[in-house]
């Protein structure tokens, strides 16, 4: 109801403004002389006022939101991204301030006066060359910096990485850890997906035996981690804002992203003075009705705590009893053909 009232008030204000506008133009028209100079002066002054207040508001907003934009990066490459961001901010900031000031100031300074003569100034090669080359140089610098970081971030993960798999589906993430052996079991294909095999794990692969599904992401600090990102139905995007990590989950193909967490959740809570703080996983690609509910908590712990946590998990195969039913059957099959157990079977 309040909303309706607000709308009514807005409509009323509009009608009043409409009337004012109509009469003011009407008066101008009756008077017969259009005070072009005065009008331009008023609008020019308004432009200057807008410029000044705009910059004040800008500075105030930066102060007000300080600490909320670009939150403390929690991964190694996050610092790299922030460095690039700040570099771009520096250059664009200078250009922004200079060009906005010039634009509004010129509009005010050279506003219409009856006696003013504009300058016939159609070309100046020196100027034009200057403002072609300077941006080109600055951009080259940004490109080189950016691409160096890009290649560093998208390079292959180191050998001693910890791997886990995140599978997006409408509307949740399924997180699979490799278990104690550190190796993820292979996937057998989506046709194997069932309530007792959420992502279609290949039970013939021995490394799938100790894989476990986790409710939330838990990772050790300071170790390289590779996420293997999959999607079951539509495109999702694996997004960890604090870690500056985003990679689409594309059905049919496996995308990857590796990163090194640099700060534990406990340390971050202390730093922010917020005991309820949590790192979060979100979906960043529109995936349907529940797009905004695909949340998981990310907990960064010390390596010791991580090992303890991994050991405490129950393997998924045990939970669904996969090996009791299937493994013996499969062994019998293999003994006939002589292929090893982990041979590729669709």
């Amino acid at each position: 109801m309040t909303a309706l009232l607000i709308i009514l008030v807005i409509v009323l204000v509009l009608v009043v403004l409409l009337q004012i506008a109509l009469t003011s133009d009407f008066i101008n028209f009756i008077k017969g002389d259009d005070d072009e100079e005065g009008r331009s002066k008023f609008q020019g002054t308004m432009l200057m006022v807008f410029l000044v207040f705009g910059f004040i508001a800008l500075l105030w907003s930066v102060y007000y939101f300080k600490g909320r934009f670009l939150p403390e990066p929690a991964s190694e490459h996050g610092h790299l991204i922030d460095m690039n961001f700040n570099l771009a901010l520096l250059f664009t900031g200078i250009v922004f301030v200079v060009t906005q000031i010039l634009l509004f100031y010129f509009a005010y300074k050279f506003r219409y006066r009856k006696d003013r003569k504009a300058l016939y100034f159609p070309e100046n090669n020196k100027l034009e060359v200057a403002w072609t080359i300077v941006p080109a140089i600055v951009l080259t610098f940004l490109i080189v910096k950016g691409l160096t970081s890009w290649y560093a971030i998208t390079s292959d993960a180191p050998e001693d990485k910890i791997v886990f798999e995140a599978t997006g589906k409408q509307f949740a993430w399924v997180l699979r850890y490799p278990g104690v052996d550190g190796e993820l079991g292979a996937l057998a294909g989506r046709d194997k997906v069932s309530p007792t095999n959420e992502v279609g794990i290949d039970w013939n692969d021995p490394s799938s035996k100790d894989d476990f599904l986790a409710n939330d992401i838990v990772l050790p600090v300071g170790k390289p981690v590779e996420v293997q990102i999959e999607a079951m139905d539509v495109i999702h995007s694996f997004f960890l804002p604090h870690f500056r990590l985003k990679m689409d989950a594309v059905p049919g193909i496996t995308t990857r992203f590796w990163f090194v967490p640099t700060i534990t959740t406990a340390e971050m809570r202390e730093k922010l003075g917020d005991p309820g703080f949590n790192f979060e996983l979100a979906c960043a690609e529109l995936c349907g009705r529940g797009h905004s509910s695909m949340r998981k908590v990310v907990t960064i712990v010390t390596p010791e705590e991580y090992d303890k946590w991994v050991k405490a998990q129950t393997p998924y195969s045990q939970l669904v009893g996969a090996y009791e039913q299937k493994a013996p059957l499969q062994t019998a099959d293999n003994s006939n053909t002589g292929t090893p157990l982990n041979a590729e079977i669709n």
Binding site: A186, G252, I253, T254, E344
Partner: peptide
């Protein structure tokens, strides 16, 4: 590159 990403899991 898609071929490689699909091949990744076999």
């Amino acid at each position: 590159s898609w071929h490689q990403m699909i091949e990744f899991y076999g």
